[in-house]
Design a binder for these strands. Structure first.
Length: 944
RNA sequence: GCCCGGGUGGCGGAACUGGUAUACGCGCACGACUUAAAAUCGUGUUCCGAAAGGGGUGCGGGUUCGAUUCCCGCCCCGGGCACCA
């Protein structure tokens, strides 16, 4: 017999499988007898074409292949596809570094890595390969983007965004990693590890926050490991609490009204822009209102400016069933508004601004409208009050001051009005400026001392007691969370307490007598006189909210920032008309291709697409003079948010994926991937899929029924693999030396796959697995025509059962152990029946597909082992006729007894008493109790 | 700080529903084969102890005839969130 030559065998079978199309996945498949097979979709996260496979890729792709093959042998029509997530920064960076075209670099990597992936011998159906940078693919990314745009789920807004100075692009919240050390907090870029800064930019967003509640609630129905769900829940960050309104004394409605325009429009931002286009700033009229003088020839510019500055969703032209409002000033038409119930709030705000800017004719028109009057009144009340969000409504009576975030709109309006009512307006302005200059990190570092400044001259009125409390501005309050303002309860909140100590503010403890919510300090004045005393915290929360506030729910989740100022990505299919209004590129012009001319890839913080003449010319040619293209590209997570749908129908040029085709595969039955995607790709995909579900484009509201997060392969030194540590394991030489089957089986053997474990790559371990496969190879020498012994037969049955269950639950390690036990046993008796060998090969086939295929052929089989059906076990033959009883005295093992399985209890006990070592121990003692567990143990309880 | 996991030999890890803790593999030791080494095969390998025996699944308690498993209180490690009110 020749030895186990993995090189020859693996090459031979990989070629044969390809020639035979063994792994081609049909849309619908039939069994030999003509009945349809059930479709089964199992997925692995597709790789980024970085240039070279490392051992982590093997772990990610080769090990789940065991499960896919197993399911196939069990009679399912299995889809186990592969592709490339091929847009993205590394390609662009590599291109810059090497002076290459990112496209060339990417596609040559795809070629090279495809070869490497094929060397694994997985059952991928390469004809379904999906590459996200192919125009045939990204056409549909763009198409889906536009569908979401039409649904109002994509919008543009200006705001503080995360900026990676190294990648020279913005990042979504999810793509910023925060690390905390003893002394400071650091936020870094998920891709390159550079410290992230903030920029004030106008960017495109997906409205993922609209789905916060559903993303949270639907987790319950998913068959995912609990820790993954928990991470998503944390990330979404739901808080149930209450909102209270604190009226402001010293602030008149008039004052607020007069400054309303400035704060909504964001005077600071718009002033210089207005100057640039030659528009006079706000002029006060005798009635106390403000007026913007816009020369007729500047009207366009003005409109463009405010349309950008004001909420962009409002300019969406897809609103149906509209009522049109025309707003005019003395010089002519300013803007045509489309009235939409869904956008009431935004419309109202806008109406207000125009009204207050003294466009008197419109004001008259508006004031005649009952709906508007009602809203105006409500809005005015809002302006006079500070709304706060709290999860501790029960501490309402402990409020001793109010704090606004520096960005709070009220702060803007109070200090920026012409005649500020805040006495120390200059001081406040200075503080706000300084806060803005600080990085997010500096500001959100809880370890730093808190700073703030009081708004002198105004007070907030406590909604329950009517008392006046001071109003402060401090940067420990976050503008983006809740209402951007908090009611401070220093007796019960650590942060408020610190702040109160620093600025010597009152500390009142109101609920010190309650079991829960014990006060932080003894400094406070204890008052226990309010009507809610004696209630539990929960009761008090409810009652107080009911009487003085409203229930409110908030989430930490922020909208998904999708624009990127880089070249190698899917172009955002938006064009702007000469007035600056965004329009989606019509379907007939998709794919809206990535330009290839004049591109300077060097990151300058602006989009490389801006230097493409072709893109501008294309835009003007199609849409007309003065139209300009969007020059940002999409976050690559958009590409990967739907790729799993494309696999179901990869060559469709009429639709992103036929709905019937989806129906036969979706949802993904098992999805394996890395833990790092828990709050990125997995969350994005769920959002995307839900949005598509609402649009009627997919059949299910959740894409992934079952998820398995895999662990990490560490370097041989037990450290995380990294180039800088020089401990990266290249699987190539190992595959050369011991073969793909050994590497794959070893990776499956090191530990359970479905837990986020960390396993060091251990060369000794891999040698052990290679030995095991060689022993399986050598078993062919001792195959006999004899029947198995009873013991071997039982062991075989147990092995089938164990391997079956373990593959199903991704516990490959114990499945392999069981096969090793079987091999150990047959080696001991130096023979193996043909039936047992055949069964062993079938069980091992998913782990070592090449080796088993070769041995299968050597046994004389004509068809591939991989289309064989999975062995069945005989459940009546799982246990032998004899059992071993453990004989204990007072719970300590003192002997063993091997008897026939069906021996009566009394006989077992009698025999047990007679065993050497038991006999003398119980001779002089009284047996108080005898515990008998059938088939397991006898325990004599004696006095000590 | 809040919320999840987890802690078992020298190492990766097993252990049903509370029932013989340490399966399987690595490593190590000894032996066989060999001039020798590698490879291979065999034997042993939880700790203390020569043995008898005793201890032992992070620590301390508890429940039980019996606890890695259940309960209470701690410690440590990994992960998620975090000035989120």
């Amino acid at each position: 017999m020749e030895g186990y030559n993995h090189k020859e065998i693996e090459k031979k079978w990989q070629e044969k499988w390809e020639a035979d199309n063994l792994y081609k996945t049909e849309d619908q498949a039939k069994t030999a007898d003509g009945s349809p097979k059930e479709n089964f979709y199992t997925l692995v996260e597709f790789p980024y074409p970085s240039g070279n496979l490392h051992v982590g890729h093997w772990y990610a792709f080769a090990v789940p292949d065991i499960f896919a093959r197993f399911r196939r042998m069990r009679g399912y029509n299995v889809l186990y596809p592969i592709g490339f997530d091929s847009f993205g920064l590394p390609a662009e960076n590599a291109a810059i570094k090497r002076g290459l075209d990112p496209k060339e670099w990417t596609y040559s990597n795809i070629d090279y890595m495809s070869g490497q992936l094929k060397s694994m011998g997985n059952m991928f159906d390469w004809s379904r390969k999906v590459v996200t940078s192919d125009p045939e693919y990204y056409k549909w990314t763009q198409w889906l983007f536009i569908e979401l745009f039409k649904k109002g789920l994509v919008y543009k807004k200006k705001g503080l965004v995360n900026w990676c100075p190294s990648c020279q692009t913005v990042l979504a919240n999810e793509q910023v990693l925060t690390h905390s050390t003893d002394s400071e907090q650091v936020a870094t870029c998920e891709r390159c590890g550079t410290e992230v800064t903030k920029k004030d930019l106008e960017q495109w967003y997906f409205k993922i926050t609209d789905y916060a509640e559903r993303l949270l609630k639907d987790l319950d129905g998913l068959d995912w490991p609990e820790p993954i769900k928990e991470s998503q829940r944390n990330w979404i960050g739901k808080s149930e609490g209450a909102e209270f309104s604190f009226q402001l004394s010293g602030v008149s409605f008039q004052e607020n009204q007069s400054s309303a325009l400035s704060y909504v429009m964001g005077v600071d931002d718009i002033t210089s822009d207005l100057k640039k286009i030659g528009v006079e700033i706000f002029e006060k009229t005798p009635s106390g209102d403000y007026k913007v003088t816009v020369p007729k020839n500047k009207l366009r510019d003005f409109e463009g400016l405010i349309s950008e500055k004001l909420k962009p969703g409002f300019w969406n032209e897809y609103i149906a069933d509209e009522t049109v409002f025309i707003f005019k000033d003395q010089t002519g038409e300013i803007k045509r508004f489309i009235w939409d119930e869904a956008n009431e709030a935004e419309l109202l705000q806008l109406c207000n601004e125009y009204a207050k800017a003294n466009f008197s004719s419109i004001r008259g028109m508006l004031e005649g409208n009952e709906w508007y009057r009602e809203k105006l009144e409500a809005h005015s009340r809002q302006l006079e009050a500070v709304r706060v969000f709290t999860t501790r409504a029960d501490t309402l009576f402990g409020v001793t001051y109010i704090v606004l975030a520096p960005e709070h709109e009220l702060v803007q309006s109070l200090v920026n009005s012409q005649k500020p009512i805040v006495e120390n307006a200059e001081e406040v302005k200075k503080y706000v400026e300084e806060a803005k200059k600080k990085t997010e990190i500096e500001r959100t570092d809880a370890k730093k001392e808190k700073t703030g400044v009081e708004l002198q001259g105004i007070k907030a009125i406590h909604p329950a007691t009517g008392e006046e409390v001071p109003v402060w501005v401090a940067d420990y309050v976050l503008a983006q969370y809740g209402t951007g303002a908090v009611m401070a309860v220093p007796a019960h909140d650590e942060r408020d307490f610190q702040f109160a100590k620093t600025y010597n503010l009152a500390i009142t403890d109101v609920i010190a007598d309650r079991e829960e919510g014990r006060a932080l300090t003894e400094y406070g004045t204890v008052i226990n006189s309010h009507e809610f005393d004696g209630l539990t915290s929960e009761e008090a929360k409810e009652k107080i909210t009911e009487k003085y506030g409203t229930k409110k729910i908030t989430y930490k989740l922020r909208d998904w920032l999708l624009s990127r100022q880089r070249y190698w990505g899917c172009p955002i299919p938006i064009v702007y008309d000469p007035e600056g209004k965004p329009h989606p590129v019509p379907e007939e012009h998709l794919p809206w291709v990535l330009p290839t001319d004049n591109i300077d890839y060097t990151p300058k913080g602006t989009s490389p697409l801006g230097s493409s003449k072709e893109l501008v010319e294309r835009t003007e040619k199609i849409f007309g003079k003065g139209w300009r293209p969007e020059i940002d590209t999409m976050d690559t997570f958009v590409d990967s948010s739907w790729y799993f749908l494309r696999y179901t129908d990869p060559h469709n040029d009429q639709s992103f994926a036929d709905k019937n085709m989806q129906k036969s595969w979706m949802p993904v039955k098992r999805y394996s991937g890395g833990a790092e995607h828990t709050t990125m790709h997995l969350l994005y995909s769920r959002f995307f899929h839900k949005a598509l579900y609402d649009l009627g484009l997919v059949n299910e509201s959740e894409p992934f029924k079952n998820r398995m997060n895999r662990g990490l392969i560490l370097g041989p030194d037990g450290q995380k693999m990294s180039k800088s540590k020089g401990n990266v394991v290249d699987p190539g030489p190992h595959v050369e030396r011991v073969g793909a089957d050994t590497v794959k089986t070893y990776l499956a053997f090191i530990g359970p796959y479905n837990e986020v474990g960390q396993y060091p790559w251990d060369l000794g371990g891999i040698a052990g697995v290679r030995r095991f496969l060689e022993r399986v190879w050598k078993l062919q020498e001792i195959v006999t025509t004899d029947e198995d012994s009873k013991e071997i037969h039982i062991l075989l049955n147990q092995t089938i059962k164990k391997v079956t269950e373990d593959i199903e639950s991704y516990k490959f390690n114990t499945g392999i152990s069981q096969m090793m036990i079987l091999v150990n046993e047959v080696e001991k008796v130096k023979k193996i029946s043909k039936h047992t060998y055949k069964t062993l090969l079938q069980l091992l086939a998913p782990f070592a597909p090449h080796l088993t295929e070769e041995l299968w052929e050597k046994m004389g089989h004509k068809n591939s082992i991989h289309i064989e059906s999975w062995p069945q076990y005989d459940s009546s033959k799982l246990i032998g006729d004899e059992v071993t009883y453990a004989i204990q005295i007072n719970g300590k093992l003192r002997g063993e007894l091997r008897v026939a399985r069906d021996t009566e209890e009394s006989d077992v006990v009698t025999m047990a008493q007679d065993i050497q070592g038991i006999k003398e121990r119980i001779r002089d003692k009284q047996v108080l109790k005898t515990v008998f567990v059938k088939g397991r143990l006898v325990n004599f309880v004696i006095e000590i």
